[in-house]
Amino acid sequence: MIFQNTLGNKVTFSGIGLHTGKTITLTLRPAEAGTGIVFHRVDISPAVSIEAKAANVVATRLSTTIGHDGATVSTIEHLMAALYGCGIDNAHIDIDGPEVPIMDGSAAPFVENIVKAGSKACGKAPRKYLVVKKPVTVIEGDKRISIIPSRHYKISFDMEFAHPAVRSQFRSMVFSNDCFSREFAAARTFGFLAEVEMMKSHGLALGGSLENAVVIGDEGILNEEGLRYPDEFVRHKILDSVGDLALAGYRLFGHVKSVKSGHDLNHKLVTELLKRTDAYAIVELAPEGVLPINIAAPEFTYQAA
């Protein structure tokens, strides 16, 4: 699409916050071109608005949290991934608590209902793309994430855990709305039983259960229904990456390569990329659906993914 999109109608979600354990309701509303994604903490008087941008990230422990004027909204990554995956550029989000509901632990409930609400173009306002021109890399110990020039938006993820139920998994995705919705949106968040018990003892994961997460015990998966995909863990890592990287504020053209990355490293990559103004260009699609030539390399003509 060459024009910015918003929701066709309002859509409301209600559920438990993974870490707070509180019941929270949020409503997505259509927004005008150039608005971006904006959360409004309507349980605070006066309401506090928080733009979903990397500059507003205040915490990345266990989830991604944005904040402004003392108000925060955490665990935004699954909803952000759903909005990006459904092609929604602009939306207002009214929320009556400090955390996005975890739903079933995936982005699928958000995607399903956003699709039902429909979408519409924001007039003739062109959609803006961030096209990577030079590689940008962040390394911390054995964790690494980079983004390099590419004709598409692509994410490759390599993960490894010292547990027989997980071990190593690798998957790569060339992003499209259909591919994300069909193959990644339903992948659930996961955690190890010992870590979940420790988090609850520290006042975290209070809303976590087998209804909204895959829990891994010493002998394997505790969920009776098992996994939705044989490689559900790495698919969820890619889902998280889509949501975290959406905080760049633009649709992306670049290949993200992750090794054991998480919310913190995802955020650091976006921050480092936006600092490196020589490493990217902000462009608009031409009417025929192509990006300008010579953005990253003379031989490249970028095609819309």
Score class of each variant (00 low, 15 high):
205 A>H: 07
159 M>H: 05
56 N>Q: 13
184 F>Q: 06
68 H>T: 00
177 N>F: 04
195 E>I: 08
45 S>H: 14
27 T>L: 04
126 P>V: 06
68 H>I: 00
61 R>G: 02
44 I>K: 15
145 I>L: 10
120 K>V: 15
134 K>W: 03
96 D>S: 02
160 E>K: 10
18 L>E: 01
296 A>M: 06
129 Y>D: 00
132 V>I: 13
63 S>H: 13
80 M>R: 14
122 C>D: 05
195 E>W: 10
41 R>L: 05
90 N>K: 13
100 V>Q: 08
212 N>K: 03
154 K>R: 15
183 E>I: 00
216 I>A: 05
101 P>D: 05
16 I>M: 03
210 L>F: 05
274 L>Y: 14
273 L>S: 13
260 K>W: 02
50 I>H: 12
277 T>Q: 15
77 E>V: 03
80 M>F: 14
260 K>A: 04
27 T>W: 04
235 R>S: 01
14 S>I: 03
121 A>Y: 12
103 M>P: 01
172 S>Q: 07
63 S>A: 15
194 A>V: 06
275 K>E: 14
9 N>I: 06
248 A>M: 13
105 G>R: 02
229 Y>C: 04
34 G>S: 04
275 K>M: 10
150 S>W: 06
66 I>M: 12
285 L>S: 10
187 A>Y: 05
109 P>E: 07
77 E>W: 04
127 R>M: 07
115 V>L: 11
187 A>M: 03
105 G>N: 03
168 S>W: 02
252 L>R: 08
52 A>F: 14
81 A>R: 15
92 H>N: 13
128 K>P: 02
57 V>D: 07
180 F>I: 03
303 Q>S: 02
204 L>S: 10
136 V>R: 14
273 L>P: 12
105 G>V: 01
